[in-house]
Amino acid sequence: MTNMKVEVLDRRQFLVTAGAAAAFIGGFSSAANATPETAAALLKELTKGGAAGAMEGKIKIDLPEIAENGNTVPVKLSVESPMTADSYVKSVHLVSEGNPGPEMASFHFTPASGKANAAARMRLAKTQNVVGIAEMSDGKFYVSKTQVKVTIGGCGG
């Protein structure tokens, strides 16, 4: 799928987007105010400071490159790890760098989970990065950042 934008129907929206590229979707009416900084601050809080030492790798956040609608964006996450009493994934936190607030969701696993994977659906107010951090039972953290392009729909209805 191409991400080329072609303005067809909506004359007023056309002028607005051409001028200022303002993104509004159904789920949110106020302007986005989460930023990479507020997202990082939230992650610091959620991980009790652990986020600072997070490494790349292990965690995979699967999001569409282009979301068909920002109201319902499927997300799948998985963390590469054994799931035993000695070594397992405790939590995965998802935060937003472009929603009205950075909070999205946290997922808490146990060795009985068998696998550290989960799937859900998220609201994304505009094109942005979604940051995921995995907290392991040994106190290590892994981070991954995924960009999702959220397009302004053509047909309201």
């Binding site: 989970s113 068998g114 696998k115 859900a120 998220m122």
Partner: peptide, 21 residues
């Protein structure tokens, strides 16, 4: 064996999938 904290960014009619051993 599994839990999740949700915020306003979770879509309406929430879907949640996960594993169990």
């Amino acid at each position: 064996f599994f839990s999740s904290d949700w915020h306003g960014a979770v879509s309406a009619n929430p879907y949640m999938s996960f594993s169990y051993r």
